[in-house]
Simulated assay, not measured.
Amino acid sequence: MSEKHPGKRICQIVKLKPEYLEEYKECHKHVWEPVAANLKKYHIEDYSIHYAPEFDLLIATFKYTGDDWAKDGEASRLDEGNFKWWEMTDKMQETLVPGSTGSRDKSGWWVNLEEVFRYDH
């Protein structure tokens, strides 16, 4: 029996174009099955997205439970199960990654944030 990896928490941000707020919320009420399946496939759990309207920011947090975040992140980026979803959602967003052209871009689309404090009890 294999032991489950303890996990790594990840937080990312991207700007939301405010005119897409309601559409963005609506599509996330009905996440497509291939997209949800890929979260599990690439060891992502406890995924949530929050919206900060005063900054037009989407803030995503999740727990990665695999052994190689770089490898799984790259595999996810190349997984066709995500392509149409990202085509839809990327048009609603504005990246903060200089020069990025979309979620399939090797440089990333969402900015990864450094964790500076954590309290677990």
Rank of each mutant, 00 (worst) to 15 (best):
M1N: 07
E3W: 09
H5F: 12
P6E: 10
K8V: 11
K8N: 14
K8G: 06
R9Q: 10
K17A: 08
P18C: 03
L21V: 01
E22T: 05
E23Q: 15
E23W: 01
K25Q: 15
E26G: 04
C27T: 15
C27N: 13
K29W: 04
H30D: 06
W32C: 03
W32V: 10
E33L: 11
N38C: 15
K41H: 05
H43D: 12
I44L: 14
S48P: 02
I49G: 13
H50F: 12
H50E: 12
Y51A: 10
Y51P: 05
P53F: 03
E54Q: 10
D56S: 15
L57Y: 14
L57V: 07
A60P: 05
F62R: 05
Y64L: 09
Y64I: 11
T65F: 14
T65G: 06
T65L: 08
D68Q: 05
W69L: 15
A70S: 11
D72C: 04
G73L: 09
E74M: 02
A75Q: 09
W85S: 11
W85A: 10
M88L: 15
M88P: 01
K91M: 08
Q93V: 08
E94N: 06
E94V: 12
T95E: 02
V97C: 01
T101L: 02
W110V: 08
V116D: 01
F117W: 07
R118T: 13
Y119C: 06
